[in-house]
Design a binder for these strands. Sequence first.
DNA 1: TAGATTGTTAATCGATTAACAATC
DNA 2: TAGATTGTTAATCGATTAACAATC
Lengths: 212, 212
Amino acid sequence: MNHSQGKVSLPVIKRLPKYYRYISQMQQNGVVKVSSSELARMMGTTASQVRQDFNCFGGFGQQGIGYNVDVLLHEIGRLLFGEGEKLPTILVGAGRLGRAVSRFLTTDTNGYHLLAVFDVQQELVGQDLDGIPIHHIDELESFCAAHKPQVAVLCLPREGAKEISGRLVDLGIRGFWNFSHYDLSIPYPNVTVENAHLGDSLMSLGYRLRND
Amino acid sequence: MNHSQGKVSLPVIKRLPKYYRYISQMQQNGVVKVSSSELARMMGTTASQVRQDFNCFGGFGQQGIGYNVDVLLHEIGRLLFGEGEKLPTILVGAGRLGRAVSRFLTTDTNGYHLLAVFDVQQELVGQDLDGIPIHHIDELESFCAAHKPQVAVLCLPREGAKEISGRLVDLGIRGFWNFSHYDLSIPYPNVTVENAHLGDSLMSLGYRLRND
DNA sequence: TAGATTGTTAATCGATTAACAATC
DNA sequence: TAGATTGTTAATCGATTAACAATC
């Protein structure tokens, strides 16, 4: 065990969820022990990379033996989801995309607690999404002052996103999961942003298809 | 003008949609000309990278002058969306995510033509999504034989995705936009796959928030 | 002890950035 | 011509892969 972590690179971080998925499946299949080369084969990478990745966090294995599946899953889970404390989260935009994404937050992942949904449409206010109440966007300030959410998920058009994200930063939001076409990365460098533009992902698929 | 393209690297391809978005906005604002350094500032990168990127495709500018916005948008659009011919596409899974994603395919992007939606649920069969008919999954074979779709968008659970993707490859699908948690990249190396696991993206945001 | 497999250092590879000659 | 800015080659940086010593 060496350096518990001195700034882990983004490529490594982005691989953690994939490790988590594969190791989680192994546990469900009753597998107890795994080697870096077995993991590498599944992940489509090299044993070297697997060991390098895990050693960014101090190393989870035993020399000569391999990795214990339970230990590995627990440690990576802890990295991704913390120590059981969940990130208080709000969702802005209750359109089709917002409704789909809320499912992920409430049932398909750990580490997040969805407190409320906001929308501009008066018709939606008072309704709920999987039991989470929909508020009018004007209540953003009072709600955030009272409940101090840390993460905001943006499922709204570009125009709205620019204005709303500014307000949210002022209200203390530290992390954005951004599906709007407005690019948040530059204006708020001290806030963590995960841009998930569906359109971008689809466009690059098109290019690759035409040119492979 | 040099090499029209001798295998462009994935990082470059993934930046194309972002260039497209920014340049598109400039055109809407009536901007006629742009330099690599202006683009770099907007994109949050260096002028060097902008020029290197464009030169993967032969270079779109004029020495001493800069880049013409119309030309740039047209050329990058051509790379992303082709010459007007749209990729015949099907969507598998008409749940919340499928309904959200269909919107992107039909109205928020170019280059794709959504032919049909498939689902296992009998109640949905016969209904439509933005005018696109929902078929039962059992009709996949006959439909594909008749209409020869090239792209499949997977919005279904992991278990379904494994089986369905195998069938789709046999039916001639060349490209997948995969939202399921099942990882397609390894089993079908000769097919283009864009994995867009929402869960993965959300998990890495969590890690970054806790450790920044 | 011998075999297996990790942790860790060194080598390679690829992507980004810098420099500069070409040219408008 | 002088200034601006690209296209392109060279240098740097970071990430991946290989090698090997430590250790179970």
